[in-house]
Simulated scan of single mutants.
Amino acid sequence: MKKIINDPSTVVADALRGLAAAHGDLLDVRHDPAVVLRADAPVPRKVAVISGGGSGHEPLHGGFVGRGMLDAACPGAVFTSPTPDQVQDAVARTDGGAGALLIVKNYTGDVLNFETAAELAAADGVEVRTVVIDDDVAVQDSTYTAGRRGVGGTVLLEKLVGAAAERGVDLDGCEALARRVVGQVRSMGLALTPCTVPHAGEPSFTLGEDEMELGIGIHGEPGRRRVPAGTADEMVRALLEPILEDLPLAEGDRVLLFTNSMGGTPLIELYVAHGIAERLLAERGIRVERRLVGPYVTSLEMQGMSLTLLKLDDELVELWDAPVHTPALRWGV
């Protein structure tokens, strides 16, 4: 195992110290329990938007903390859910009097721990709502979740709800928006290589030189099937077609296309894939109106990619374009 780390047992804490050093103007990083807060938290009379999950998916979630997106993120150990006390602390430190919305990826540990934290926060007098995202069309069940997994669509959900909260939308409105987005976003990914969790010291699975795992999860969980690695055109079709089967889109519909690197795929290859996806959607009369390309939901150093489609309307376009200022996403500022 070759990694730029000192000790597998302290890698998350060490990374959080580096995050604080790099983005101290935007973030307030706490260590016991580990919570990443926007520097100006709590914002009075604003709904606090909070998410989190296992580390190893950076910049998700800590890199999306800041104005126009998340108020706090709770980083667990690598590929491990954050604990209820982390989430409870995040709620307490970001509560501006308008309640909190928890965005939770559909993994069993995340759902249980965030639900426990919501109950504890409610007992402290904070109104808390929870929305679970399950945008992965690859599988119905996996090692980590009951039902579909929460993957690339999480980034889009955090941006859109964060923009609404920044504008002063109340808790009911933020929750309704989040549930609408969950209903019209779908994703699927593939892996060309496994990743190595630092404390494990060996790859999470094995792939032959000419194989790829289609429908991979962001923790290295197996997908739909293992198939021969094909051309970029074949890979993109293999991801896009199941999404379009699951998310009915008609000619003339508008979408946001998110082409994501799993961590080890360089941008030159990602742009190849994105261009193919845009062409295939255009052939169906589906209009790509907004785009995001890059490593935003990663799986350590895994080579691979995912595609996410979100069906757009005027309100979602306006919220996507709204200013955002975080370590990983920033525009309009």
Rank of each mutant, 00 (worst) to 15 (best):
D246T: 10
D170Q: 05
E269H: 00
G230M: 15
D210A: 15
P295K: 10
E289S: 12
G220F: 11
D32F: 01
A163F: 06
M302W: 13
L300K: 12
G208E: 13
Q184V: 04
F114D: 03
Y107K: 06
L70F: 09
L60A: 13
C195F: 13
A121T: 08
A164P: 06
G230T: 14
V137Y: 01
D25Q: 01
V151E: 05
L102I: 11
S9I: 06
G153S: 03
V43T: 01
N260C: 02
P228M: 15
D136H: 03
A200Q: 12
V317Q: 10
L319Y: 08
L300E: 10
E175C: 06
A176K: 01
D14I: 00
T196P: 03
E213M: 15
S9P: 00
V36P: 00
L319E: 06
G56S: 08
E278D: 00
V317M: 11
R30G: 05
K159Y: 08
V272K: 03
L60D: 05
G62M: 04
V104T: 09
R67T: 06
T298G: 14
D253E: 07
D124C: 12
N113P: 06
G183Q: 02
G230W: 15
Y144F: 13
L19I: 03
P75F: 06
Y107D: 03
Y296P: 08
D321V: 09
G153N: 01
D136S: 08
